[in-house]
Write a protein that binds this DNA or RNA. Sequence first.
DNA 1: TCTTTTTGTAAAATATACTTGACAAACTGT
DNA 2: ACAGTTTGTCAAGTATATTTTACAAAAAGA
Lengths: 66, 66
Amino acid sequence: MAKNLKLKSARAAMDMSQQALAEAVGVSRQTINAIEKGDYNPTLNLCIDICKALGKTLDEIFWGND
Amino acid sequence: MAKNLKLKSARAAMDMSQQALAEAVGVSRQTINAIEKGDYNPTLNLCIDICKALGKTLDEIFWGND
DNA sequence: TCTTTTTGTAAAATATACTTGACAAACTGT
DNA sequence: ACAGTTTGTCAAGTATATTTTACAAAAAGA
């Protein structure tokens, strides 16, 4: 339930909108929004795709958000 | 589709069976088996729980398995 | 060898990640 | 002030992660 601010800021650092990131990884904008908002639990493959799109690793974006 | 040998060996290093790890993280043994076998895509929360149970981070177990 | 534990695998059911479509609030640029 | 983009959110549907039950092969211990 904690917001994922690491994701939000990494996305901002790449100057990408939620929409642009969604398209880059092949999911809907709402899915990206929900992940940032923290109210759900993405699959590993999606996390990996997001990290690759943002030039980060899993630990940098999805570890220690509790 | 690639086997997750990092998971398998981290589990072995803790001397845990698939069953024991499954119980520790609250999923079925088949789920752990499938993740090690590599034929599916667990959720982030499960990955995190597995890492915590094994004393590892996401990057150590789930990054770079492609 | 015998027994027990561990692992591999499969099919049917359930829970939940993710989509689509839609609408309004907040922000950006002109 | 206005137009365009971005974000927040909702409800109903679809795809898929995970469970349950079950059986057999492989490994480990006595």
